[in-house]
Each structure stands twice: as C-alpha cells, then as structure tokens.
Design a protein around this nucleic acid. Structure first.
Lengths: 209, 209
DNA sequence: CATCGAATGGACTCGGTAGTCCAATGGATT
DNA sequence: AATCCATTGGACTACCGAGTCCATTCGATG
C-alpha cells in the first residue's frame, strides 16, 4: 500500500511534529493548536506537515493520540502488567502520579482527548475509547490476579473497581488543575484504591479462603 | 452604570440565547460553538448577540457559565444545603444523578468548562473555579454537619472527602460518556461516598453520641 | 398620532486557519 | 558524477468565524 520510503531523517521530523503537537494540545486543546504554531515549534514547513500526515490536522491529532496513549501505558510499566501483589499496586500508583507530575500539567493526555474527541472526530473518539478500555482491562486483570491469589476478597467486581479507579484518576486531575496541586489526584486515587485494601483478607478478622 | 433599559421581550431573547449556547457548548465545546450556529438556533441576528453581550463571544460564554452553575446547584437543592442526615445525602446523590440524566449528555456543564476554560479565557477560568470551590465548600459543610451531629467519625478531613466526591463525579462522567451509561458515574460516586458510611458510628459496634 | 429608544435584520470587513501547489534542496544509490 | 526521490520552503487560495455598522421595525408613552 504505502510504497513511499521514509528515511531516518524523515522519521525524526515526523516524530518531532507528533510530540510538539501533543504538548500543544495538552496546553491549549485541539482547537487551540494550529498547524502554524506546530510549524513554528518544529521549524518545519506547511508542506512537511501534509507530507507526513496527508490527512491533515485530523490525521495528525490521531497520531498524537496513539503516541500519547503508548507513552501513558509505558509510564506504568512494568507494574500495570503485574498488579499481582500489594507492592505492585503501590508501585503502580506512584509511577502514575509521577508520570502526571512530569507532564507539568494536571491533565491526562488521553482523558483530555476523550472529552474533546466526541466533539470533533468520530475516528479519534474510537481510538481514545480503545485506549481507555485497554487501560480498564489491565486494571481489572490486576484485581482478578489479587483475587486469584486470595489476597483480596473474591466477591468484588473487578470491572467495577477498575472503572472506579480510572474515574478517580480522571476526576482527580480535573480537580488538581484549578488547585494547582497533586493532592486532589492523590486523594481521589488513594480513596478509590482503599476498598482494595479494606478487602484485604486477614486484615481485621481471620477469615480467608 | 448600565443605564440601558431592557424590556421583557429583550430579557426573554437574551435568556434564549444563553440557554441555546449552553446546549451547544455541552454538545460541541466552546470551539465548536459559533455565533452563527447560536444565531440560527435562536432565530436571532448578529446584532442581537452583540446587543445583549457587548463583550462578544467571550462574554456570552461567561454568562452561560454562570447560568449553568446556577442550574447545577439548583438541581441539588434543597439537599446540598442540608446534608445533615443520611437521608439527605442519599437524596442529594439521587438528585445529582437525575440531573445529569436529564441533561441527555454524560458531561458536567461546569467540569467540562473547567477543562476548556484554562485554555481560552482567564476570566472564565476564575468564574468556573469559583463555582467549583463553592460546590466543594457545600459538600465539606455537609460532612462537618454529620460530624457535629456525631453521625460519623470526627477524624476524617471534610475538605478531602469533598474533593474525593467531586473527583468521583467528574471522573465518573468522563467514563460514562464513552460507555454511554450512568453506571460508571454511579459506581464512582457511590464508591466515593462509601467511606462516609464506613465511618458511620454505631454501625458495627454500639457506641453512639 | 407622534416620538423615542429598544429590538431586530443582515450585509460587510477583517483576520486567521486548513489545505494546495510548485519549486528547490539534499542525500543515497548506481 | 549522475540520477532519483524523499525532504523541505513558502507563497497562495478558499473558507469560516468574530465583530462592525447602518437601516428598519416594534412598542411604549406622551
């Protein structure tokens, strides 16, 4: 299909465009990000933008979404693929908070896009939904591992818990933004994670199995 | 200051513009809402928009923010001003979910604006922050009332609990949107409210007062 | 019924943004 | 060295949206 060759130099330029666009979208939203500002930030030209992203701005934004989703998941590695021990959950939680801290902005690249996606591009919406579902699936899998290992009670619904934790992250960020502090995010996340600990077998009474 | 007279007819037109704009912003975002679409939806003319909102689109959006915030708070009455009994909290929770249900979209007029505000208009940002803080304050006041009435443990931090509950609402809505169901919102909200119940005095052991 | 100001209609300007196009450059390959 | 194509530069077009302006209608009040 795509018989066009791409050199290392080209790949680097393309990546530079994606990352710069990602930063601008996080700071100013999709609407606040223009091809001209991207061009200026990357020292490229209009023709390059359309050379690497023939679909124009919409395609560029979708590429950004994919890239950001990948970055977000990688930042949670290796814990997000484990989550089979208490330590793993704790490490995951810290890694996630650290990721948002490093972003420099109290916003989730994916959650923020999720809000804007439905309003702009159905394809983008699907992409973001997929990322979000994948994320949910991993958290739910972690809960199931904890249950399988008899570390927590087996009666809780892993899907539900995963959604609650994700909601706490997204909502925590919404609150962290105006308060310019990580504490709302951390409070919401820890609070959502609390049920997990409360179901810890053998915590208060001695029933297990 | 504003010596200009306004008739009932004018007031009605102005209000019609605000409400239509609010709906469009909720559906398409600030960027996706244009004065032309508002004009079309309200059967008005360009000059009317600037007649009633001399500050242009920015002023119109701010008026919408104020109106939406008022609507959101009113939807929680009279419970949000009470929250001194278990029943009141339960009623408040149901009223809020019902409000979002009636909106027809899984999005918070204020939370959604909060996300977009920082990117567009600093004045709007302040307005939204104020509304959000007021909302937090009321929830925290409710927690304090419960503590004062010795209905729950007094050691919990009301401010923190209020933030956690608000985050659950906002994050729950983020998740409800792609899943097109109220269950993420309800799950997140109920989960955030759970600590309140767990601190219920006299729940497991018999001490009260 | 005359008048005044509010309310309305709609054409017009101005600026910004996505997208097009063609020419020029540069590096790899032979 | 010659050639080819990816890469790059940047002017240009088309369109859309905010905001301006002036003319007209409507309704209240004397």
């Amino acid at each position: 299909m795509d018989g066009r060759k791409i050199t290392d130099r080209g790949r680097a330029t393309r990546q530079r465009i994606i990352e710069a666009t990602g930063e601008q979208i996080l700071a100013a939203g999709i609407g606040g990000t223009t091809l001209d500002t991207v061009r200026a930030a990357t020292l490229t030209s209009k023709s390059q933008l359309f050379h690497y992203f023939p679909g124009g701005k919409a395609e560029l934004v979708r590429e950004v979404a994919g890239w950001e989703a990948q970055q977000l998941l990688e930042a949670q590695e290796p814990f997000i693929h484990d989550l089979a021990t208490w330590q793993s959950w704790s490490d995951w939680r810290d890694a996630l908070v650290h990721y948002y801290l490093r972003l420099g902005r109290w916003a989730c690249p994916i959650g923020s896009l999720a809000t804007q996606a439905a309003m702009t591009d159905p394809e983008l919406e699907k992409l973001v939904d997929t990322s979000m579902s994948e994320w949910r699936r991993m958290l739910a899998a972690g809960v199931e591992k904890m249950q399988a290992a008899r570390l927590i009670d087996g009666s809780a619904d892993p899907e539900r818990l995963a959604v609650v934790v994700l909601a706490a992250i997204q909502g925590g960020l919404v609150l962290s933004q105006p308060l310019k502090s990580s504490w709302p995010l951390e409070a919401a996340l820890d609070s959502a994670l609390d049920p997990l600990h409360r179901e810890r077998l053998g915590h208060l009474d001695g029933n297990r199995e």
